[in-house]
């Protein structure tokens, strides 16, 4: 449907709906349920240079209108992603996929991105400088403009694919970090990653999450995410991918009115595995309700 199409760094998406990294695995669990080719694209599980088991369990906590996760970047490592996950994905997903990358040093990011640059299936590199769940890693790069810029430059030097830098909301000034990434050559910005949070088990009198804190996501964070998308999209010239608590077609439209050109859907996939399918199906009627002819014009109007 033409009116749902949007552009993301020079690649046309059939619609702006993108399952967010860490909530969609490498796609197969969902491909058993519906044809995932209906998606704009999806961002696969955060991938690192070496395989990682991640954090001890419990890694999950219930919250009001949301959840906390502290998975800690469990993934099979970039070589296995290239040799096993991507060939398997090819059988159920024919579109360019977004490769989500994390690292523990600038060299790690560059190495992993250089490896994924060789994969024709990968359309975009989403560089996660914002994982709250790894000590001394991910998020420290995303909480300082100079470090975020350094990662961006290093990655841009090894890939011709569009680089989208995924930012953390756990900062005092997200705009300065977004601008630093843009200046360093980022082709796009995505935000927000999860908000650092915690819960305590009253009976046990200790944190629910084994590693104490984790990333809070779900509908409760939507207004915070929307505000940051609004701020960043007015400050940078590159496309912005909005995410954080998006659960309905109306949320997608609202994110785009705040300035996002595409929208990632995270926690909602875990509660309702059909969430993205429903959002895509609901979009035309929701657009009609608000007099929107095509989605592209909302973002352009907002910016």
């Amino acid at each position: 449907m033409e009116r749902l199409k949007v552009d993301l760094c020079g690649i046309t998406l059939d619609n702006p709906v993108i399952p967010a990294s860490g909530t969609f695995g490498y796609g197969y669990e969902f491909a058993e349920l519906y044809d995932i080719n209906i998606l704009g694209t999806f961002s696969f599980k955060g991938t690192t240079r070496e395989p990682r088991f991640g954090n001890p369990t419990p890694r999950i906590a219930e919250c009001t209108a949301g959840m906390i996760n502290a998975v800690g970047l469990q993934n099979p490592g970039v070589e296995k992603v290239i040799s096993e996950e991507l060939p398997r994905l090819k059988k159920c997903f024919g579109k360019p996929v977004m490769a989500n990358v994390s690292g523990f040093s600038v060299e790690d990011y560059a190495y992993t991105c250089a490896r994924l640059d060789t994969c024709p299936q990968v359309g975009w590199l989403e560089v996660n400088v914002s994982c709250p769940n790894v000590h001394g890693g991910g998020m420290s790069f995303g909480t300082d403009p100079a470090s975020a810029a350094e990662v961006t430059r290093a990655v841009k030097a090894v890939t011709a694919k569009p680089v989208i830098v995924k930012l953390s909301p756990n900062v005092t000034d997200v705009v300065s970090i977004a601008k630093a990434c843009e200046d360093a050559g980022a082709d796009g910005i995505s935000l927000i990653n999860t908000l650092l949070g915690m819960r305590i088990d009253l009976k046990k009198r200790r944190p629910v999450i084994a590693s104490v804190m984790g990333g809070f996501s779900g509908p409760a964070v939507f207004p915070v995410a929307l505000r940051m998308v609004y701020q960043v999209s007015r400050a940078v010239g590159v496309p912005v991918v909005g995410m954080g608590g998006v659960s309905t077609a109306e949320d997608v439209i609202e994110m785009m009115m705040a300035g996002a050109c595409a929208v990632e859907v995270g926690a909602a996939n875990l509660v309702d595995p059909f969430a993205c399918k429903k959002i895509i199906e609901d979009l035309p009627a929701a657009m009609d309700r608000y007099g929107i002819k095509n989605l592209k014009e909302i973002t352009e109007g907002a910016r």
Partner: peptide
């Protein structure tokens, strides 16, 4: 184990085994 999704997508309930994660 405490689970996120219950169907294999989120890696919330992983464990180590002799045959891998």
């Amino acid at each position: 184990e405490r689970m996120g999704c219950g169907f294999g997508a989120c890696m919330g309930c992983s464990c180590r085994t002799v045959t891998g994660y």
